[in-house]
Design a binder for these strands. Structure first.
Lengths: 137, 137
DNA sequence: TATACCTGATCTCAAATTGAGACTATAGGA
DNA sequence: TCCTATAGTCTCAATTTGAGATCAGGTATA
């Protein structure tokens, strides 16, 4: 395995590798990638599309509180970065299908791991916020 | 293991679990967590703090193009959500040390995996953008 | 025939978020 | 006395976001 995951207390090898060796802040891959897939809707889009290809309207229904404007823009961004592909079917009215590319599929294992962590640890975060708010009074 | 990582082509079990079972969009853990650690600077902060505790000024030097305002705010947000702790030393001038909490440590394995993916696949994304721009002309 | 409606996408304007840079307090050193 | 360093905060302009109307074009309904 090229990079090992960190166990609690283990030396953070990935972080050190990234932060030390050739870490150009001006053209930082971490920020460049995280900015996009960390966007407000991107992870939810990728997660939804990982189950199966979706049409525009399906995505809108799957993620109800996204505005049409942001849906279009999020899809454009993901397409631009090569995570998803866009297929127009010349039906009437025209329908458009979005699906993960190979690159998009390849990010799902680490992204899913992070999402799983998020779901598992969400209660702790909510609790931490409550404690913080109480301390701030 | 509670959740398994996905191999390419495997059924996206995490995504389905999240999207189906009790997935309340209004109080979505995925968005709630990703919004914060996916923020423009959060992942870089966590990554930097995972190597060792840092003082405010050290963080500013480690992430040069963050503004002081956003550094303060990002640290507050991470502290509020329980990822990092803040220790004030009553020296003159006072110095403040930030370090990962147990919760913060626990997110590093999945976050590091994603960062590793980002570093490994950054060239493909840059290439995808180039192709997209050319096709758009 | 006229009207409503479906699709995916865009336009406009107001609201929220962000960045740049100046400003605060205190104390030590030149 | 003036300059430096620390960890922030404050203000204002620029960018990003959301809500809602609008578009194009063809089909179903009245």
């Amino acid at each position: 395995m090229k990079r090992e995951l960190l166990a609690d207390g283990e030396a953070p090898s990935v972080a050190e590798a990234v932060l030390n060796a050739g870490f150009d802040m001006a053209n930082c891959p971490v920020r460049d990638v995280m900015d996009h897939i960390g966007g407000k809707w991107s992870s939810l889009m990728l997660l939804t599309l990982s189950t199966k290809p979706h049409r525009f309207g399906e995505l809108k229904r799957a993620v109800p509180d996204i505005s049409q404007r942001m849906l279009t823009q999020t899809l454009r961004d993901l397409q631009r970065d090569g995570y998803i592909s866009r297929h127009v079917f010349p039906t009437v009215p025209p329908s458009v299908e979005y699906r993960l590319t190979e690159l998009g599929e390849s990010i799902m294992p680490p992204l899913s791991a992070l999402v799983a962590w998020a779901v598992d640890n969400h209660p702790k975060i909510v609790e931490a916020r409550k404690v913080y708010e109480e301390g701030a009074e």
